[in-house]
Simulated assay, not measured.
Amino acid sequence: MAPVTTRGPKLYVFSHSSSLIYIGQTVQGMSARMRLGFKADGTGGYWGYRWRKELAEASLHIWVLNECPEEEEFYALECIESEVVYLYRSEFNQWPKFQTEIHFHESEGNHRALAREIFNGFNK
């Protein structure tokens, strides 16, 4: 169901046993993004979701920013993504186990607050 199935910025988290294992940001519909992540074979240097070969299952959680101007949404979600990874690193002294890349941007208080809400939903 839109906006998850349609093209547009979204943030997604894979978790396993209630622990965050990977966070990403995409503008693709989630079915296209997941297909790419599960079928990647190293072409172009992308190997897909690392956890797919080690875990039998994972839960998917998706967020969009409804009240953010469209031209700012991608940047805002990348800020939130990196802040969630930073919180994880700060809390556990390690990066999320299957995180393969992250893009850092200067964030604002609202990005950090939303990241804290997302982070607090995992790793309890």
Rank of each mutant, 00 (worst) to 15 (best):
Y12R: 01
Y12E: 00
Y12P: 01
V13A: 09
V13L: 00
V13F: 01
F14W: 12
F14M: 08
S15A: 14
S15N: 12
H16I: 03
H16W: 12
H16C: 10
H16A: 09
S17L: 15
S17W: 10
S17Q: 15
S17R: 15
S18G: 10
S18K: 11
S18I: 05
S19I: 04
S19T: 10
S19G: 00
S19V: 05
S19D: 13
S19M: 11
L20R: 05
I21E: 08
I21L: 09
I23G: 00
I23V: 08
G24T: 00
G24W: 02
Q25E: 12
Q25Y: 07
T26E: 00
V27D: 11
V27M: 11
V27Y: 11
Q28L: 14
Q28D: 14
G29L: 02
G29I: 05
G29C: 03
G29V: 03
M30G: 07
M30L: 15
M30D: 06
S31I: 10
S31V: 09
S31A: 09
S31Y: 12
S31F: 11
A32Q: 13
A32H: 12
A32C: 10
R33M: 05
R33W: 02
R33D: 00
R33Y: 03
R35A: 14
R35D: 11
R35I: 09
R35N: 14
R35F: 13
L36V: 08
L36A: 12
L36I: 10
L36T: 10
G37C: 01
G37E: 06
F38T: 03
K39S: 15
A40L: 01
A40M: 01
A40I: 03
D41Y: 11
G42I: 06
G42E: 07
G42R: 09
T43V: 11
G44Y: 05
G44H: 02
G44P: 05
G44C: 04
G45F: 07
G45N: 06
Y46L: 05
Y46S: 13
W47R: 09
W47E: 03
W47A: 07
G48R: 03
G48H: 02
G48E: 03
Y49T: 00
R50L: 13
W51F: 15
R52E: 03
R52C: 09
R52N: 08
K53V: 08
K53C: 07
K53M: 06
E54Y: 13
E54G: 07
E54K: 09
L55Q: 02
L55D: 02
L55C: 04
L55H: 08
L55P: 02
A56S: 15
A56E: 15
A56C: 15
A56N: 15
A56Q: 15
E57H: 12
E57I: 07
E57D: 12
A58M: 08
A58D: 01
A58Y: 05
A58R: 04
S59R: 14
S59V: 12
S59F: 11
S59A: 14
L60C: 07
L60R: 08
L60K: 03
H61D: 07
H61P: 01
I62S: 01
W63D: 04
W63H: 08
W63S: 06
V64I: 12
V64C: 14
V64P: 01
L65C: 06
N66P: 13
N66Y: 14
N66I: 11
E67W: 09
E67P: 01
C68W: 07
C68E: 13
C68S: 11
